[in-house]
């Protein structure tokens, strides 16, 4: 007992002895009204400010400008001349977006392609995630490793590999023709099919990983309970597994859908001229048309069309989760 008492007396002395470095820093922060808590909030805030808000304001500014063959290729928003500050805001770029069906169609097609890709990724990814989650321990790690493995090689390289597989003189056509299944090569490159293949292939791990994380937590006795209460395995899946994995489906779908909407590289390399995606349109505006103001307007419009609904959806889900 007495030994314990001594020990507990000693401890504070020791820790005080170690503190001198930390104390002034903590004191300074405290004087500024910044506890460690404020610091934790401040870092992401500053991050967002510097890497999201400021670029966003710059893009918004350019979107209100007018295109010019100059460096940079747009006119300044304000001018200071003879003591008069003249501000010229050009909303024409937004009006142009609204008037030209191209942008509307590109948004729509991006959403469609991203939507279907997400669906395909879900249909392929779900059974894989389920299988991995139900695999025995050691096997599970190997399978997870295999899912992540493609990330170890360059994304571009993998897309190029798909070109080699899908093209007219590519692996698939050669294989099908050599076994006599087809006489003429099937045109797969430069089609929407190739874009779907590319997007689903590329983003599949982003679907599998959150689904896996969700499914691995699924209490197996719930499945036994459903079976005990008279559900066959398919009914059990529909009524228990599927609804309980909705958060995983939601997370995985967002992780696939959002980057797929803005995808540029895959439609540019695998898609044909008919594949109209907003990422390609943006690239086109910046590089082919060199029209930064319109490009910026497209970017801003995309933000409002996509990100805000997604944020609202997420918020709705969060508050829903809070209730139960």
């Amino acid at each position: 007992m007495s030994g314990q008492a001594k020990l507990s007396e000693k401890l504070p002395e020791k820790s005080i002895g170690r503190l001198p470095f930390a104390a002034p820093l903590g004191g300074a922060l405290a004087r500024l009204g910044l506890g460690p808590r404020a610091l934790v909030i401040a870092i992401p805030t500053v991050w967002l400010l510097v890497f999201f808000l400021i670029p966003f304001v710059v893009v918004a500014k350019i979107s209100l400008s007018e295109v010019a063959i100059a460096r940079p290729p747009y006119l300044p928003l304000w001018e200071w001349q003879d003591g008069i500050l003249s501000l010229s805001l050009n909303f024409g770029n937004y009006l142009f977006l609204a008037s030209d069906p191209l942008y509307y169609s590109a948004f729509l097609e991006s959403l469609t392609i991203a939507g279907f890709s997400t669906l395909f990724a879900l249909l392929i990814g779900y059974p894989m995630a389920y299988m991995i989650a139900r695999a025995p321990g050691g096997m599970r790690n190997i399978l997870l490793m295999l899912v992540i493995l493609p990330f170890w090689s360059s994304f571009l390289l993998r897309v190029y590999a798909w070109i080699g597989i899908l093209k007219t003189n590519g692996v698939i056509n050669h294989a099908l023709m050599s076994i006599g299944l087809i006489d003429e090569p099937i045109v797969m490159m430069q089609t929407d099919f190739a874009v779907y293949v590319g997007i689903v292939y590329t983003y599949l791990p982003f679907m599998i990983l959150p689904l896996y994380a969700n499914l691995v937590k699924l209490d197996e006795t719930l499945l036994e309970a459903a079976s005990d209460l008279g559900a066959g395995s398919f009914t059990t899946f529909l009524t228990v597994t599927l609804p309980l994995s909705l958060p995983g489906i939601f997370a995985g779908s967002l992780l696939v859908f959002i980057p797929a909407v803005g995808e540029f590289v895959i439609p540019a390399l695998l898609g044909g001229p008919d594949t109209l995606m907003i990422g390609k349109v943006l690239w086109n505006e910046f590089f082919s048309n060199r029209d930064w103001p319109v490009a910026s307007a497209v970017a801003i419009a995309m933000l409002f069309v996509l990100v805000i609904p997604v944020m609202l959806l997420q918020k709705a889900q969060q508050s829903d989760g809070g209730h139960s």
Binding site: D219, L222, E224, A225, L244, S324
Partner: peptide, 9 residues
């Protein structure tokens, strides 16, 4: 079931 295995949803 010991854990009751009630469907949480």
């Amino acid at each position: 079931f010991q854990s009751y295995a009630l469907f949480p949803h």
